[in-house]
Design a protein around this nucleic acid. Sequence first.
DNA 1: CTGAAAGCGCTAACAG
DNA 2: CTGTTAGCGCTTTCAG
Lengths: 330, 330
Amino acid sequence: MVTIADVAQAAGVSISTVSYVMSGKRSISQETRDRVELAITNLGFSPHAGARSLASRSTNVIGLQAPLRSGVDVHVIMQIVTGVVTQARKRGYDILLLTGDDSKALERAARGSMVDALLVMDVESDDPRIETLAELRHPSVLIGLPAGRQTIPCVDFDFEAAGWLAVDRLVELGHRRIALIGSPREVMKRHTSYADRLARGFLAACEANGVGGSVHACPSSAKAAETVDGVLADDPTITGFLVHNEGALPHVAARLIEIGRHGGDEPAILALCPEDVARSVPGLTDSIAVPAEAIGAAATDMICELLASGTRPGVRLLPPALAGGVLATT
Amino acid sequence: MVTIADVAQAAGVSISTVSYVMSGKRSISQETRDRVELAITNLGFSPHAGARSLASRSTNVIGLQAPLRSGVDVHVIMQIVTGVVTQARKRGYDILLLTGDDSKALERAARGSMVDALLVMDVESDDPRIETLAELRHPSVLIGLPAGRQTIPCVDFDFEAAGWLAVDRLVELGHRRIALIGSPREVMKRHTSYADRLARGFLAACEANGVGGSVHACPSSAKAAETVDGVLADDPTITGFLVHNEGALPHVAARLIEIGRHGGDEPAILALCPEDVARSVPGLTDSIAVPAEAIGAAATDMICELLASGTRPGVRLLPPALAGGVLATT
DNA sequence: CTGAAAGCGCTAACAG
DNA sequence: CTGTTAGCGCTTTCAG
């Protein structure tokens, strides 16, 4: 292994000079700098991360705790992770993917000085990890927005505003009775947060617009079609659907198209999901993009700022925007 | 920060005793061990990862380079990552998600002693990273199977056997003319490997069974339906489809159902994809599961064995198996 | 503008 | 069975 001492010897300078050339923390003559940099590339030197973190008390690594139970909105999670990783790279950080999804994993990473900061996804409202994070003296940011008072900075999509935007759009298209097809029942319960926020915005907007709106939990499987049937059986006058359920979306779309084909107007579907998911669903008219990658990037930015300046940045919600669907006419 | 010295003092023993209690590398009297362990939990001590890696020359971290360009078979990738992470945890390793998808990232992690070993996904046949890995003195395992001589151990799904199995199944269902709807054209070119292996198995099995088979590239979007139309226009007698394209799958299925409805027999679709993807596609009859999580776990096991024993484990291909689709009758 | 040297917290000889 | 101690490779005072 090539060490800083090898570089120093090759360049004919002292160890500390090499260190300062790398960190830029004091001025170095151009000539010396050149010699050192040459030696570094010639020898293919990379500083030993452990030694560095031992001496400097910082790792340049951000710990990321992502929900890895497969099956739940994988696209969104993956894209958020992509955003995190990409942005982290830009800012010179690496990402330690925490194995284990509990407080223990967070403590281990923090107490063991494996990371400088923690990024935690998929936090529930009364999640015990929130308290753990508060006790740790490592900066941390949540991706999501647990209900209640925020003790830890958060980044999320503004689901409430998305509810409003969706209703505005459906009303603009002429629909007067609309339904929100949402997350599976167990998710609705678990994450009080985002499903609730969406429903709140949706219902408030319906009321403000004087249109009828209803909210329905929905399984993420082929059984989603039954949910649609049930909703329409309850109220056959519904013509506009907002769908926020990645797994159910194709089934809901297929069922609605089928219904449209058998007579009556084809109902409009507005999906709330990442753009590429929307693109992959046949027969989708319109969508509101969940800017998943941007959320990851924003969270990373926030954490880097925390690390740099030590400020407490509070909550940041990214605004929704309409995106075209496959058959978008906009 | 609580250090090993604090623990030693609290337990009234020397630093090295604490170290040996943790590592188990020498025998300790039960009484001493108890005192030390108590002190450790009381103080909430976790050893400083950097200091440890500096002294022991090992990190207990595995570097994982995953393709994060969103849009390509996210489910498969995510599930592999899940398998890797889960298995790594069981074996006491953490996962450093490498930011950057080139040789540089691998070198940085290895040279900087950030990881003990490297796991690389999505390797192409003439991928420059293969040479990089060979030069590094860190153990590494590829997830995938680049064409040519294997210099680095590999773990992958046996796509060739999957081709055979698919044909067997379609023939068993009575189909005599079948088509493989595969990856997008650019993927077919890029990864010579897995698309080729699947096609090879598929065509060989067709020949062995005396049935007509053809292979078709397919875009992962709504335009997939056109591919189906084209295939059927070329040969209207085709009744069996093997689909290996997560994005196209719902569109292909929808189109085939539509065609079936307009007269003629509804063609059979056999999908090659993770089980939960198969489950989410309306109208799918049958599928062969890509055991994505198992692949990740197997790769991790292989790397851990490499790390432990230093053997060179060669290539490991996981066998295919039939799984039910939504409407499976098997 | 540059060097020398004191740690950072831990592991693993070496020495009982 | 336990203690003492010499590094691991780097950052950062402190001294020029």
